[in-house]
């Protein structure tokens, strides 16, 4: 088990992540990932059947930057507010990372995402579970991997922002 100090740091990382996407600070969102990041959104059906398709998969820092640019500059979409609520992390393992550079924490958490469009009621956008791998880089915790597995069978039209 991680010590309290480590749990506090993980909670702080989660909170920073949530803040970045809820505040639409997508450059900060990119910075919360390690130098070799992996970010994936996929349907629960794909995840459980081990099907490789993603709703979105970003496997490099460059791809993450391109997504941030896409969100703000290239994808036409309805303006909306996103409120991402993440539950407490369940830490499943802590081990020495393969790179030999410190430890690798694997953890999971539930998330719910609410969407509020202009002139509309707030609605549940999607719910699901994160599967995370967290490493330490330059003294800070970073996501090496965040896989967002969505329970919701139907995406309400389009997913623009990261979840």
């Amino acid at each position: 088990m991680p010590d309290n100090f480590e749990l506090n740091r993980i909670a702080q990382l989660y909170a920073s992540y949530e803040r970045a996407i809820n505040q639409r600070e997508f450059e900060s969102w990119v910075d919360i990932f390690s130098s070799e990041p992996y970010y994936r959104i996929t349907a629960r059906e794909n995840f459980e059947k081990n099907l490789p398709l993603s709703t979105l998969v970003l496997s490099s820092k460059g791809m993450m930057k391109d997504r941030a640019y896409g969100i703000t500059q290239t994808i036409f979409h309805d303006p909306y507010h996103q409120r991402n609520i993440t539950g407490l992390p369940f830490v499943s393992s802590v081990e020495d990372s393969a790179s030999g550079k410190g430890r690798l924490v694997q953890c999971e958490a539930n998330f719910s995402v609410f969407r509020t469009k202009l002139d509309k009621l707030s609605e549940v956008f999607c719910v699901g579970r994160y599967f995370d791998e967290i490493v330490e880089e330059d003294g800070a915790l970073k996501f090496a991997k965040r896989v967002c597995v969505i329970d919701s069978e139907m995406i309400p039209n389009a997913i623009i922002y990261p979840i």
Partner: peptide, 24 residues
């Protein structure tokens, strides 16, 4: 093929906005 799938679907670089304009 998996990587280019990022262009399509509900979050795709070219398909997300199709769903949006249909709704509007």
């Amino acid at each position: 093929r998996l990587k280019q799938a990022n262009l399509f679907g509900p979050s795709g670089y070219v398909s997300a906005d199709d769903g949006e304009v249909l709704e509007f």
